[in-house]
Write a protein that binds this DNA or RNA. Sequence first.
DNA 1: AATGGGAGCAACCGCTAGTGA
DNA 2: TTCACTAGCGGTTGCTCCCAT
Length: 252
Amino acid sequence: MITWAWPAPEKGWRKGPWTPEEDKLLSEYVKLNGEGRWSSVARCSGVNRSGKSCRLRWVNYLRPGLKRGQITPQEEGIIIELHALWGNKWSTIARYLPGRTDNEIKNYWRTHFKNKDKSSKTHEKRKSSELKQKRNNQQQEDDNRPEDGKRVGSSANNEKLQEEHGKQELHFICPILGDQTLPVMFQDAAPWTELVAEDGLWGGLWNIENGQEGRADYNNTNCNKMAVQNQASALAFGGDPSTCFYTGGYIS
DNA sequence: AATGGGAGCAACCGCTAGTGA
DNA sequence: TTCACTAGCGGTTGCTCCCAT
């Protein structure tokens, strides 16, 4: 197998943490020219970074639509389930968590689960005090810098959205696959089912008739009978398909 | 007040897979 | 078919922050 390396640092690519100026240069370049061709991004954007580094920075930090902030309990549930299913396939797992990157999930898993058995009372103590402090800070942060892209999808945010949009709690849909269950966030039902179909894991669609109480059973016999879209999923759960969107914990 | 250690996260590294000439 | 190039993945490292002592 060819071991390829990114272009040799002819002038010495910069390493280490990205500066706001570099972020700006990269974002502007990618917005103008699109993703891909990372080696030319490195050469032409004015950022003295390797293409690999540029790609990573964009994918993990600068890309629009990224959800920053704490992993929600729902997302945590998904991570646990999918990790049980696929192991360390972080990018695959990340596909089912919109706005989350594989790196983020990988880090989360390592810090929260890999050493779980090592966790001590001290750890628990610290966690709860952190949570407390975060809760206190959250409202302040949201008030002070709502647009800085650092902490969105927060619990405080969810509460706001919940108030604004009318309070239907986000449920998981758990398709049955033999003895395995797979949690899916409601808002992403269409991409998820498309992926599943593409991957040939289930090759079929939801049985809407069974979609009661926020649960749907997978039904092989319904393969290809209907195109599952967000709206269809919304219908399956008695929601209004025209207003179905993710609000970071609640659907309207 | 100083400092040692753990947690969390950003970034790097090495490798593989995909693609087009 | 081979080879060069590119994109992406998973593992690892290193830095920063914060808490406990």
